[in-house]
Structure formats: C-alpha cells, structure tokens
Design a protein around this nucleic acid. Sequence first.
DNA 1: GTTGACGTTGACGTAAACGTTAATCATGAC
DNA 2: GTCATGATTAACGTTTACGTCAACGTCAAC
Lengths: 147, 147
Amino acid sequence: MTAARTGGRDGGRDGGRDGEEETYSIAELAREFDITTRAIRFYEDEGLLAPRRRGQTRIYAPRDRTRLKLILRGKRLGFSLQEIAEMVTMYDATPGETGQLELFLKRIAERRATLEQQREDIKVTLAELEAAEAAAKRRLRELRGAR
Amino acid sequence: MTAARTGGRDGGRDGGRDGEEETYSIAELAREFDITTRAIRFYEDEGLLAPRRRGQTRIYAPRDRTRLKLILRGKRLGFSLQEIAEMVTMYDATPGETGQLELFLKRIAERRATLEQQREDIKVTLAELEAAEAAAKRRLRELRGAR
DNA sequence: GTTGACGTTGACGTAAACGTTAATCATGAC
DNA sequence: GTCATGATTAACGTTTACGTCAACGTCAAC
C-alpha cells in the first residue's frame, strides 16, 4: 500500500546518465492504482497504452503513467474504453488539417455536453442524498430520544 | 419525438372518476426516454421497477416514471444497475431500526464520496477539454490566416 | 374475420471489460 | 544449479446490460 514510486532494482534511474527518466514496471503501476496487471495489458491491447519494451518486458515511462491516470479517470466517470481512447488521443494529437480540426472541435463540444449533463446529475443526486441523510439523522435522534 | 405524455386511448384519466392518476404504457415511457421496451422490462427483472398490471399488461404510474428517471440518471453517471437499485431503494425506504439507520448513513456517505470524486474528475476534465479546444481554435486561425 | 398495432414471456446472442488458469521465460539470490 | 519472484503470451470463462428473434395474446378498425 505504500505507493511504490520507483520500484526495486530496475525502476528508477537507468544508470546515472544524464538523460534519466523514471520508469515503472507493470506491477508497480498496478499496485499504485490498485488495478490488476491484466487490466493494464488489456488497455494496451485496446490501443490505450503503448509502453516501451526491453525484450519482452514492458517498461512504462511517466507519460504512460499519466495516460493510465487519464484512463482511470475516464472510467470513474463511466466512459467506455473506446470513448476514453478518443479523449486520450485528443490530448496528445491536435490535428493539423482544417477539416480534422473542425471535427475535433465538434467532438470536444460533445464531450463537454456530456460532462455538463453529468455535473448537473451529480448536483441533483447530491442534494437528494443530503435530504435522505438529514431524514435518517432526524429519525435516529427520535429513536434515541425516546428512552 | 413529440413526447407523448398521455398516450392514445388508454393513457390518461381512467374514466373521469375523482381518484384519477396519470398512467403510461411501456411504449410511451420508452419513447419519452429514448430507450427500448426491452430495457424497461430488464430493469423490472432486476427489481428496479414494479409497475401495476392490468391482466398481463404493465401499467406505469407517475411514481414508476420517476423511478425510471432516477435509473437513467444513475446510468448517465456510470453506476451499475445494482448500485442504482441501492440508491433507488434508499430514497423511498428510510429504515426504522437503529442499526439499519447507521448502515444507511454509511452507504450515503460512500455514495457522496464517489459523487464528489466524480465532480472533481469532471472539473479537471472540463479544464483539459477547454485547453484542447483553445489550442485547436488557435491552430485553425493560424491555418486560415496563412493564405 | 383478418389485419395491424401493441402487449406478453421465454430464450439465445452479444459487446465490453476484464478474471482466471496454463504454460513458459528471465533473473537475482542462495 | 535451483529456487523464488515477476514477467510474458494464449485462451477460455464470467458478469453486465441489454439486443434480437420467436411464438403467442388482445383489441380496435376495417
């Protein structure tokens, strides 16, 4: 549970050279984000991640870790992996062509609409929850008051 | 698409009597909320809805319609039907026993934590989207500016 | 009386998102 | 060497949330 940020013998600096970059093993990321390695590999199969390899072994750079964070955030909001894939590629690949840019803007607008709907849904739901909570607390006091 | 609020010959008032209550057919609700009748029946199978019957036919009262709304709101927030079931029963069944009340309050607190996490996620995501949008618009102006 | 619109209950199919073995390989520690 | 640890691919299994027929009932309209 103590968030392994660099891992064992192989995680951190790769030798002391100047172009040092933090790296992570698949198990480290799995522990840090409390998911399984299976899930991480699955995201890769779906094109959401593309870590380097040393031989067969996957080596995750900070960029990969950031992408994984984005993926999990998308999941918490209930998006499908396909939708998340769109969003993720959105961030790091602003298109260069005019037509693509316009489509890009349209997609962004759609996402924003969804997110704003969710924001509204959350607002309403929180209000209802608080009402229910207040009612329950009242009831509790009643029960305790009546000895 | 013109939100059928009372339906054909059978939807509205049930005769003119005083205890009138708006009712809905399954198809009406399906149209109104843009889902399939299959989905609605599925929610019933899962214990999320329990409409009256006239013979075999399902008759939905305003309360059922409200529950359906709640279900769909839960879906938009990415909750599973099971989680939604919990929330829905939460609202209309404040428990009477002390122990249950305390568990109830715990559940509410959990939900609230989830919702607040989502709220935060949405905030961050919206900010990122807006950054991406601004970048795209800038790029568009560049392309158009260069004749 | 049959057509059409709408309703019903099965029951099998499917896409998404992993879980769960299984078999195998690489490596540092002893 | 071998043993434990952690990595790999491959492949089948599982759960959720419906979609998609199929076969049938019912009622108003023609």
